[in-house]
Amino acid sequence: MNQRAIVLLSGGLDSATVLYHAQAAGDECYALSFDYQQRHRRELHSAQAIAHSAAVHGHEIIPLDLGRWGGSALTQRDLDLPRQRHPAAMTQGIPITYVPARNTIFLSLALAWAEVLGAKRVYLGANALDYSGYPDCREDYLLAMQQVYTLGTKRGREGQPIELAAPLLHLHKGEIIQLGQELGVPWELTWSCYQGEEMACGMCDSCILRREGFRQAGIEDPLPYAGT
């Protein structure tokens, strides 16, 4: 019998790959996305399109206002996004695109839905290699959150903890794209740009990592970019 699973689906190529990976593993997938007033809310259109393409069993988009306090260039439009940085520079310190406690909030809500739904695991597309230095995309953080999943739920205390799965954690972006290609991920539906315009900018950290990943994988990125 297939096990139910929650997949955090942002609309980006990492989360799309995780969704298709979970389905290939035989999980009955439910997608969870968040409208947290991010400047790149365009990604939610991609999340909906990917969820539809993958024929998930359910897709929830939860409204949150993480821009209420600001603190990130992704939620505070008067802060400039980093542009044209070399990928090596992106792991030097925590960038201004870090959204305070974002993954902790998302994973907590995913945990609540998973427990109600009777899901076996929660998937997310965290990556510890090409990850822009975010503290909540690292292995030690995920191990700590697994403890929360185990100790903070009825299921966990009764010996049936919900698993937190991050299958892309130790893959480079090119390897993620190669995996997604094998799984049939519809790259043309995904979105990575932080700028939030109708066309990807090609110069923000996320665009640069995406373009470099496709180059490494030897696969053409189907998305058009401004100025090219």
Rank of each mutant, 00 (worst) to 15 (best):
L124V: 06
L124I: 05
L124P: 04
L124Y: 15
L124C: 15
L124H: 14
L124F: 15
L124G: 13
G125H: 05
G125M: 07
G125R: 01
A126C: 13
A126G: 11
A126R: 00
A126P: 02
N127V: 07
N127L: 01
N127C: 12
N127T: 00
N127M: 02
N127Y: 12
N127A: 07
A128R: 09
A128T: 09
A128Y: 15
L129S: 04
L129M: 12
L129C: 07
L129P: 03
L129D: 02
L129I: 14
D130C: 08
D130R: 05
D130S: 08
D130W: 12
Y131I: 01
Y131E: 06
S132N: 11
S132P: 04
S132Y: 11
S132L: 10
G133P: 04
G133V: 03
G133S: 08
G133A: 06
G133K: 02
G133D: 02
G133M: 02
G133T: 03
G133Y: 06
Y134G: 05
Y134W: 15
Y134L: 05
Y134A: 07
Y134C: 09
Y134V: 04
Y134N: 05
P135Q: 04
P135K: 00
P135C: 03
P135V: 03
P135F: 09
P135L: 01
P135M: 04
D136S: 08
D136M: 03
D136Y: 06
D136W: 03
C137D: 03
C137P: 05
C137G: 08
R138G: 07
R138Y: 08
R138I: 08
R138M: 07
R138K: 10
E139Y: 11
E139P: 13
E139L: 14
E139W: 06
E139H: 14
D140H: 14
D140Y: 11
D140W: 10
D140A: 15
D140L: 12
Y141D: 02
Y141H: 10
Y141R: 04
Y141C: 06
Y141N: 04
Y141M: 05
L142D: 07
L142V: 10
L142R: 08
L142K: 08
L142Y: 08
L143D: 14
L143W: 14
A144V: 06
A144H: 12
A144D: 06
M145R: 03
M145I: 10
M145L: 14
M145G: 02
Q146Y: 07
Q146F: 08
Q146L: 06
Q146C: 09
Q146M: 06
Q146A: 10
Q146P: 09
Q147W: 10
Q147G: 15
Q147V: 11
Q147S: 14
V148D: 03
V148F: 15
V148M: 10
V148K: 02
V148T: 11
Y149M: 03
Y149P: 01
Y149V: 00
Y149F: 15
Y149L: 04
Y149S: 01
T150H: 13
T150S: 11
T150K: 10
L151F: 14
L151P: 02
G152R: 00
G152C: 09
G152T: 01
T153F: 11
T153R: 01
T153D: 06
T153Q: 07
T153M: 01
T153P: 09
T153V: 00
T153S: 13
T153I: 01
K154A: 13
K154G: 11
K154E: 12
K154R: 13
K154P: 05
K154D: 10
R155C: 08
R155L: 11
R155Q: 08
R155V: 00
R155Y: 09
R155F: 08
R155N: 10
